[in-house]
Design a protein around this nucleic acid. Structure first.
Lengths: 226, 226
DNA sequence: CTTCGTAGTTGAATATCGTTCACTTTCAAG
DNA sequence: CTTGAAAGTGAACGATATTCAACTACGAAG
């Protein structure tokens, strides 16, 4: 690269870098506050303070509070997608991959503390989850159906029903209305939604699964800045 | 009754009757406003105005706005329960009753205009629905399981998953993200959650059902006062 | 019929919070 | 160095859930 290009890149970087830092700081702050107090109780002022920006700056990055909440959830879903990817790594059979993916979602949604407050806006959570993880799952279901392993007529419908059931179940576990011990049994039931035999679902889920590597393990979204 | 008792009843009645009228008027007004604008956009002042009471009076009957919304939903669920009762009247087989009940819930949640705005608070809706219709359904599932027709290990878990799936599905239909034509197919899928064979569920649902009598038909909660 | 205490009603006042906007600061290009 | 556009700021705004001190209606007692 020429010196001029290099100089330009550095000069442009000042503003661009600050913007990126602000956006990340805002999502991190919002994630923290919303996880602590719930989405409704989190105030824009506290989020702005924690991100070290003025109250008005938030609106340069997000159109509204709901917009910010959705951005936080997209981030959370990104982490969930990583976990699914890692947990299903190495499996071939689509039905098996789907079974493990569902179990991973259930486990994550009920054990990650960040989900606890966020799930109270279950509508948004289900929406974002459907958008973020939907394509992967729907494709999986479609391929399973084509291979004859599942009787899934409409993969989108099946996954939509499953998504909302998962969110509702997660909410119930967090509120201690159902025992975490029934997570596997819930997963088996959910398999039925897509046309898998209960016995087969149980067999798939009971096989030993690899432990997740630490970098995929649960951790707060907020981390030390470099 | 003695004249004194009668006199007492009338005198006591003045206050008591006004209170009952206020409570009913408030729920009716809240139902109207919330159905029109959504729960969040409905203001306590407009609700109070439409019920012809002062703004402060609302808080003599309901602790908070959420409390009022829950009361409205209880009322809506009461109507749903009536519809289920009527639609399943005359059937003997528990699995059949369950199938029709699920279909009725799906149809109601996706066609009653009142639900359209209310469903946006899907968390509350699912909670109230679980409380209101849960016992009936759970009992039904437990009896079906005992008779060997279903393989439902935990009826409560099964109905909880089903409830949230229904609410989420209703939301999706209202937002036109899935076609109403898939309501029956969703119902059949939901049957799988409780351990019914898809083919059997389809058979149960495709039998002709009686039309609902007018008094159970969909109608706005608000009615002319006498 | 009159009086009195209680329970219910009221709506103006309060507090909170999401959002806006007129002004200031930053910064890269010329 | 100058400059103007882009980004940041926080005080001010508007909306609205909730509170509360004053007010009213009612029914019981004398």
């Amino acid at each position: 690269m020429t010196p001029k290009e290099s100089e330009n890149r550095i000069k442009e970087g000042r503003v661009a870098r600050r913007q990126r830092r602000n956006r990340e700081a805002l999502i991190r702050a919002a994630s923290d506050v919303m996880s602590e107090k719930g989405i409704d109780a989190a105030t824009m002022l506290e989020i702005a303070d924690r991100a070290d920006v003025g109250a008005g700056t938030v609106y340069n990055y997000f159109r509204s509070k709901d917009d910010l909440a959705i951005a936080v959830l997209e981030e959370v879903m990104q982490g969930l997608a990583l976990r699914i990817e890692s947990a299903t790594d190495g499996y071939e059979d689509t039905a098996h991959i789907y079974a493990i993916a569902v179990l991973t979602v259930l486990e994550t949604a009920t054990s990650d503390p960040r989900w606890q407050q966020l799930l109270n806006r279950s509508g948004i959570v289900a929406d974002v989850m459907f958008r973020r993880i939907g394509p992967f799952t729907i494709d999986l279901l479609a391929r399973s159906a084509r291979s004859g392993r599942l009787q899934t007529g409409d993969p989108t419908l099946a996954w939509r029903l499953t998504t909302h059931a998962i969110v509702g179940f997660g909410l119930a576990v967090i509120r201690k209305e159902v025992a975490p011990v029934s997570i596997p049994s819930a997963a088996i039931r959910l398999m039925a939604l897509v046309g898998l035999e209960a016995a087969e679902a149980e067999a798939l889920l009971s096989r030993p699964r690899p432990t997740l590597p630490p970098e995929i393990a649960l951790q707060p979204l907020s981390s030390e800045e470099k």
